[in-house]
Amino acid sequence: SEFQINEQVLASWSDSRFYPAKVTAVNKDGTYTVKFYDGVVQTVKHIHVKA
């Protein structure tokens, strides 16, 4: 599913667990740039983002 900029989502971290994050960019290659609550910004594949 498509997510929008500033949408609150759950994004997987390197430990494969999902954490609350905010979408900061929707990228043309189908990835999302997300910002976790601790301030870390990461680009993740769409399969690693869920509502």
Rank of each mutant, 00 (worst) to 15 (best):
R17D: 13
Y37F: 13
V26W: 04
F36V: 00
T33D: 13
K35Y: 09
S14H: 13
K45F: 07
F3P: 04
N27G: 06
R17L: 14
A51P: 13
I5S: 03
S1T: 12
T31P: 07
N27L: 06
D29P: 00
K22F: 12
P20G: 03
G30Q: 01
V41L: 09
G30I: 00
L10N: 06
G39W: 08
K28D: 14
Q4V: 09
H46C: 13
A25D: 06
Y32M: 07
S16E: 12
D29L: 01
K35D: 08
S14L: 14
H48P: 03
E2P: 09
T43H: 07
T24Q: 09
Y19R: 08
Y32I: 14
Q8A: 11
T31G: 05
D29A: 00
T43N: 11
V26L: 07
G39N: 06
Q4P: 06
S1E: 11
Q8G: 07
W13R: 15
W13E: 06
Y32W: 05
Q4W: 09
T24W: 01
S1C: 14
D15N: 06
S14Q: 13
P20H: 03
I5G: 03
I47P: 10
Y19A: 08
I5R: 04
K50F: 07
R17K: 13
E7K: 01
V49E: 05
D38I: 06
K45I: 10
V49H: 04
V26S: 03
F18S: 03
A11S: 03
P20W: 05
Q4Y: 09
K50V: 10
F18R: 00
I5C: 07
Q8H: 13
H46P: 15
I5H: 05
S12I: 15
Q8I: 15
G39F: 07
A51C: 09
Q8P: 11
T43F: 06
V26C: 07
Y19T: 03
K35I: 14
S16N: 14
R17N: 14
F18T: 03
D15H: 02
V44F: 00
D15G: 13
Y32D: 03
V23Q: 00
V34S: 01
H46L: 12
D38W: 15
T33A: 02
V34K: 00
K28A: 13
Y19V: 08
H46S: 15
K45E: 10
Q42M: 14
R17G: 13
S16L: 08
E7F: 07
L10G: 02
S14M: 13
G39I: 07
S12D: 05
V26P: 01
R17Y: 12
K35T: 13
Y37T: 08
S1L: 14
H48S: 08
V40S: 15
K50T: 10
V26Y: 05
V44M: 04
V41E: 11
Y37C: 14
A25I: 08
Q8Y: 14
T31L: 02
D38N: 15
S12P: 10
Q42I: 15
V44N: 02
V23R: 00
E7H: 03
E7S: 06
Q8E: 15
L10P: 00
Y19L: 13
Y32A: 06
W13C: 15
V40F: 11
V40E: 13
V23E: 01
F18C: 13
D15P: 05
G39Y: 07
N6R: 02
A51H: 12
L10M: 10
T24K: 07
S12Q: 15
H46G: 15
A25F: 06
P20M: 05
S16I: 08
S14D: 15
K28T: 12
R17V: 14
V41M: 08
K28G: 14
L10T: 04
Y37V: 08
T31A: 03
T33S: 06
D29H: 01
Q4C: 10
V49P: 09
Y32G: 02
F3N: 04
T24N: 03
I5M: 07
K50S: 08
Y37A: 12
A11W: 00
T43C: 07
K22V: 15
K35Q: 15
N6Y: 09
T31R: 02
A11V: 15
A25G: 09
S14W: 09
S12M: 15
S16T: 11
Q4H: 11
V49G: 07
D38G: 07
I47K: 09
R17F: 12
V23W: 00
V41S: 08
K45W: 07
D15C: 09
K28M: 11
G30R: 01
T24M: 14
V26E: 01
T43R: 09
A11N: 02
V40Q: 13
V40C: 14
D38E: 04
D15Y: 01
V34W: 00
E2Y: 08
V26K: 07
V41Y: 09
F18L: 09
I5A: 04
G39H: 04
T31W: 08
I47R: 07
D38K: 04
E2W: 08
V9E: 01
N27W: 08
K45D: 14
S12A: 14
T33Y: 06
W13F: 13
Y19N: 03
Q8K: 11
D15V: 00
T33F: 05
D38C: 15
H48A: 11
F36C: 08
I47C: 12
Q42C: 14
L10H: 06
F3Q: 03
A51S: 11
Y32Q: 03
D29F: 01
K45Q: 13
V9S: 01
P20A: 06
D38L: 06
V23H: 00
V44Q: 02
K50N: 08
Q42S: 11
